[in-house]
């Protein structure tokens, strides 16, 4: 994969949940080496887009197509998408009682590694590996022994998502509000984690409400989403403008 190559191409995507259409003709293109930000009012469909791309079974796609590295993403099972290099950092990560974080992370790592013909790690090797990654994210190794996300604070859950991204080393990472609920230090650390992933061969899609994350992880493009569509795309300065002016001037324009 070289810089500039198209990694993810979304065309005319319509999707609904519980019989309600949420995405109404969405277009988006991510190329290798790029960071994109998606902003937009609450309920505009940002998380819906993220989950549709990752393959959440509750959502149905009624029209449009998505090519991921040239293949039909929508034809793949969600686990297959992950094995092919797609990653979703959840806005609200679920708790999985009874499953230790360490064994969950290792299973995920080995499954994705197996999918791309990489080397799998035994528990001891993995322990070294994961501790290294945790150190970068200034995470206490104690999180390995706890059950997945169980009782984690909001910020801790988000860091655990970034840890998973760092372990799985995806080609396209979609991070749904990776920055919400983080304190100032955590925001810096999470930003560091995202920046560390950033490379010429991959792409990042950041869903966010605030400029502050984008101060640390500078996007190449900023998209504004409203009522299930991208209504404006611009350079990083667009985010600054949104911060001062809000969305009315754009959504009003869209309605007109």
């Amino acid at each position: 994969m070289s810089a500039g190559e198209v990694l993810l191409e979304v065309r005319g995507l319509h999707a609904s949940v519980a019989g309600v259409e949420i995405l109404k003709g969405l277009d988006l293109r991510l190329c290798a080496g790029e960071v994109h930000a998606i902003m937009g009012p609450n309920g505009s469909g940002k998380s819906t887009l993220s989950k549709v791309l990752a393959g959440h079974p509750s959502y149905t796609v009624s029209a449009g197509e998505v090519a991921f590295r040239g293949i039909d993403l929508l034809a793949l099972e969600p686990e297959e998408r992950a094995r092919q290099g797609l990653f979703l950092g959840f806005q609200y990560p679920v708790e999985i009682p009874g499953v230790s974080n360490a064994s969950f992370l290792r299973l995920a790592y080995n499954t994705v590694q197996a999918g791309r013909g990489g080397e799998e790690l035994d528990p001891l090797e993995f322990d070294d590996f994961v501790r290294g990654r945790m150190q970068l994210l200034e995470m206490d190794p104690g999180f390995l022994d706890r059950d997945v996300n169980e009782g984690f604070s909001g910020g801790e859950k988000k860091r655990n998502e970034i840890l998973q991204m760092a372990l799985l080393d995806p080609l396209v990472a979609i991070l749904d509000e990776a920055d919400s609920g983080l304190d100032i230090d955590a925001l810096r650390i999470v930003s560091k984690g995202i920046s560390a992933l950033r490379a010429q061969h991959n792409a990042v899609l950041l869903v966010t409400h605030y400029q502050r994350l984008l101060d640390h992880v500078v996007p190449d493009f900023v998209h504004v989403m409203s009522e299930g569509r991208i209504i404006r795309t611009g350079p990083r300065e667009l985010a600054l403008e949104l911060e001062s002016r809000g969305y009315d001037w754009l959504t009003g324009a869209a309605a007109a």
Partner: peptide
């Protein structure tokens, strides 16, 4: 779905 999004069926 959380498992699936990490590659696990």
């Amino acid at each position: 779905f959380y498992f699936a999004s990490r590659g696990v069926g």
